[in-house]
């Protein structure tokens, strides 16, 4: 599925990712935790191909394809989905117009016919319902005037519609109350089908009570410094990142 080998990446000539390795197999859920500034969000941007995020070393393949050779939109069509921590507001472009274009781009990639307006609307309505967004959100500008929680749910709604093979959730829990967190987690869990893989990036263990990870990795200073099962997240919850910082120092020595 996803294979990251010795990835080095920088933003504005500042090295952020410094030799990251990660293997994600179909159906697995990997959580990436780490202190602020560890490079968690950067990883998502680098994998999605955002402008200004330079890869200086390493290989990334998704479903056997060299991801780093592809443009942003091609990566998305290969099945990569990034749910943003802070989704941008785009007034003037309706959610409906945007998602229809997007869904049909994915269908074209899979060699399927584009959906008619009616077929699309049916799917979109079902996805809205699943994440408890009112239907009129489809007509509104993309994320325009949405609350923080609504934006996060809109991201999950898009994920449901686009049926990606690898989902990266970038702090999808931040700023959510417990009820909203439950909705987001239910949306994600509904998409776990044994084949689709997830990378859940989070600062807190809380989200992982709702989305159970198979693996937990600790990212510090651009590298994965510790990996384990779900119990590692609880360890972090108890004692914070301080002890990891220490072990990281030891590893450096």
């Amino acid at each position: 599925m996803l294979s990251i080998k010795n990835l080095h990446a920088s933003v504005e000539e500042k090295n952020i990712i410094k030799g990251l390795n990660l293997e994600v197999k179909p159906g697995e859920v990997h959580a990436i935790m780490g202190p602020n500034g560890a490079g968690k969000s950067t990883l998502g941007y680098v994998l999605s191909g955002r402008d200004g995020y330079e890869v200086s070393e390493g290989d990334v393949s998704l479903n056997g394809k060299d991801l780093l050779e592809l443009e942003v939109e091609e990566r998305a069509r290969e099945g990569l989905f990034l749910a943003f921590q802070y989704p941008v507001e785009i007034p003037g472009v309706s959610n409906m117009e945007f998602m229809k274009e997007s869904v049909n781009a994915m269908r074209e990639q899979r060699g399927e016919e584009p959906l008619s307006a009616a077929e699309f609307l049916k799917k979109a309505k079902a996805a809205c319902k699943q994440v408890q967004l009112p239907l009129d959100f489809l007509k509104r500008g993309v994320n325009e005037g949405f609350s923080g929680g609504e934006k996060k749910r809109n991201e999950i709604m898009q994920m449901i519609l686009l049926e990606p093979s690898l989902c990266i959730l970038d702090e999808s829990d931040s700023g959510l109350d417990v009820d909203a967190l439950q909705v987001v987690a239910d949306g994600v869990n509904s998409q776990r089908d044994g084949k689709r893989s997830f990378i859940v990036v989070t600062h807190y263990q809380r989200l992982l009570d709702y989305i159970k990870p198979d693996f937990v990795h600790i990212l510090a200073d651009g590298k994965i410094v510790k990996s384990g099962d779900a119990s590692l997240a609880h360890e972090v919850e108890k004692s914070g990142y301080a002890f990891l910082g220490k072990s990281y120092e030891e590893a450096e020595a």
Binding site: S48, R50, D51, E71, V72, E73, R75, A76, R77, F81, L82, F84, P87, V88, I90, G92, V93, E97, F98, M99, E101, S102, A105, M106, Q109, V142, Q158, L162
Partner: peptide, 24 residues
């Protein structure tokens, strides 16, 4: 550029994304 990037991450072809964002 940020809005353009957002649309691209959803697989929308670049030319269509530019039309959506700027042609309205």
């Amino acid at each position: 550029e940020e809005a353009l990037y957002y649309l691209l991450t959803r697989g929308v072809p670049r030319s269509k994304a530019l039309v959506m964002l700027n042609f309205g």
